[in-house]
Structure formats: structure tokens, C-alpha cells
């Protein structure tokens, strides 16, 4: 029941997320794109749980929890970086460069 369209939507959402992460430089937008991908996966889980059982729905709760934790930590980091550099542009944040 609506399995195909649901998966299609989630695929589109995921792709938007990936492209966003790859192309955008703004940390907040990037963060939103990651959330988008997570939710795309959630949608897949829910959709497929019709066929494969309730396990998928349980998984969704895990993902949501992780996403919430990630939001808390990630936003805090972004905030800290912003305070430090007065910018959230990723171009300037390359501390990991070897």
C-alpha cells in the first residue's frame, strides 16, 4: 500500500540531503541536510515495515533518539565554532587538514 511512492519520496529526500551536504557551505544548512537524510531513512523504515514486520518501526525510534542527541551535540559544536570564528562557513573550518 503506497510502498512504491513512499520509497520514491524517501529516495528524493535522501538525494536532496546528500546533494545539500556536498554543495552547501553553511554549517546550519548542512546540519539540516543531515537531518533530512535521517528522516528519509526513517520513512523507508516505516514504509517497509508494512512488509517486513514491526522491527523497522522500532528502528525509527532509535534513529530519532540518535538524531536528537546529534542535534544537541552538533548544534552546540556549531555554536561554539560560531563564537570562535564569527562564521559558520565551512570553508573557514578546516582544522582537520593534514
Amino acid at each position: 500500500m503506497l510502498l512504491g511512492p513512499s520509497l520514491l519520496v524517501s529516495a528524493i529526500l535522501f538525494t536532496i540531503g546528500v546533494v545539500g551536504v556536498m554543495l552547501r557551505r553553511n554549517a546550519i544548512v548542512l546540519f539540516m541536510c543531515i537531518e533530512l537524510m535521517l528522516n528519509a531513512v526513517n520513512l523507508t523504515f516505516v514504509a517497509l515495515s508494512q512488509v517486513l514486520g514491526l522491527g523497522g518501526q522500532v528502528m525509527v525510534f532509535f534513529v530519532m533518539t540518535v538524531a536528537a542527541a546529534e542535534a544537541a551535540v552538533g548544534l552546540a559544536i556549531i555554536l561554539a565554532i560560531f563564537r570562535h570564528t564569527r562564521s559558520v562557513d565551512l570553508k573557514n573550518i578546516n582544522l582537520l587538514q593534514g
Binding site: 551536504v21 556536498m22 557551505r25 548542512l30 578546516n94 582544522l95 582537520l96 587538514q97 593534514g98
Partner: peptide, 18 residues
């Protein structure tokens, strides 16, 4: 040599990851 791959640009990492 390995450290040259670490550009620090997140976008690059994502591309490689993908």
C-alpha cells in the same frame, strides 16, 4: 602522504564517502 588526503573540507569528505 596519507595526511594529504585530509583537506579539512567537509564537502570533499562527503564526496569521497559517497
Amino acid at each position: 602522504i596519507g595526511s594529504r588526503l585530509q583537506t579539512g573540507q567537509l564537502g570533499f569528505y562527503v564526496v569521497v564517502f559517497l
